[in-house]
Simulated assay, not measured.
Amino acid sequence: MATDSTHSTSQTRSTSGIDTHPDLMALRGRYAEASAKPISGLIEGLCLLTGLYLAISPWVVGFTGFTGLRVSNLITGIALAVLAMGFGSVLERTVGLGWCAIAIGVWTIVAPWAITGPNAAITHTIVNNAIVGGVAIALGLATMGLGFMGGRRRAR
């Protein structure tokens, strides 16, 4: 008899979990509304393209002699592209990860000096990473702002 009551209690807990909480449902609805806006697709697409460009930029710009920086750009570019694909597919679960895109952007700006040291006088590597890093930071901030877009109309 005790087994039956324990079993029915565990079924009740699983159906009335956090997934059905009204605040969580409202938050997911807000993110779903924000992800349906055209600006959301634009931000996600630009973030994906920025990540892909960052990954291939050492070969496009010509980072000859900078193997460490080449590997860094490849890895961080792939990470940014994967993050952007997450923004595009499940924004309501990844919108809080916009800070990762910001961190990738900051690292991209700092990487020429952090990896090659103070001898990073090759301007094309610095300019490339500064521009791409700045774009990644801006897109990360924009992604974080997407969560506020869904509730803006109701607040007015």
Rank of each mutant, 00 (worst) to 15 (best):
T143E: 11
N129W: 03
I43M: 07
I43G: 03
G98Q: 03
S14W: 00
L80M: 09
L83D: 09
A81E: 02
Q11A: 06
S89C: 08
G98C: 04
L97S: 02
S72F: 09
L54E: 01
T94L: 03
M85F: 13
G68E: 05
I126V: 15
L83K: 11
P38S: 14
E33W: 12
T3K: 15
R156S: 05
N73K: 01
I104Q: 08
S72C: 01
G41N: 13
V61H: 07
N129I: 01
P112V: 00
G65W: 05
F63N: 00
T3Q: 15
F63G: 00
V61F: 09
L69N: 02
G117H: 02
Q11Y: 10
M149T: 14
G62C: 05
C47N: 13
G45N: 14
S89G: 02
T143W: 13
A142M: 10
I137G: 09
T50I: 02
S10L: 06
A155I: 05
I75H: 04
V71C: 00
M25E: 14
V106P: 05
S40P: 12
L146Q: 12
A136S: 13
I109E: 00
R30G: 07
S14P: 01
R156W: 08
H124A: 11
I115Q: 06
G134E: 07
P38M: 10
N119L: 10
L80I: 04
D19F: 04
G96P: 00
T64V: 12
W107Y: 15
L139T: 02
L91R: 11
L141Y: 06
T123A: 13
W113V: 02
T76L: 12
I39S: 15
I78P: 02
V110P: 09
I39N: 12
P22Y: 11
V61N: 11
T123Y: 12
A101L: 01
I137Q: 09
L27V: 11
P118A: 11
R153P: 03
T125Y: 11
I126K: 15
L139R: 05
G17A: 13
R70P: 00
Y31L: 14
L97Y: 13
R153D: 12
G98E: 04
L48R: 09
V71P: 00
W99V: 08
G51E: 04
D23M: 12
L83T: 14
S8P: 06
F87P: 07
D19L: 08
G88Q: 01
L42T: 13
T94E: 01
R154H: 14
T50P: 07
G133N: 09
P112E: 07
P58G: 00
T50D: 10
T116N: 08
L80A: 04
G151Q: 09
A26V: 13
G88I: 05
T20Q: 09
G45P: 10
I18P: 01
Y53C: 10
V90Y: 10
G140W: 04
V135I: 15
V110W: 13
S14E: 03
K37Y: 14
R13G: 02
W59F: 15
P118W: 09
A103D: 02
Y53T: 15
W99E: 06
W99C: 05
T143G: 12
V61I: 15
W99A: 05
G133A: 08
H7G: 00
M144E: 07
M1F: 09
M149G: 03
T12S: 03
S57R: 04
I137D: 04
G147M: 05
S5D: 11
G77P: 03
S14D: 05
A34D: 07
T12A: 06
F63T: 00
G133W: 10
A34V: 05
G96K: 08
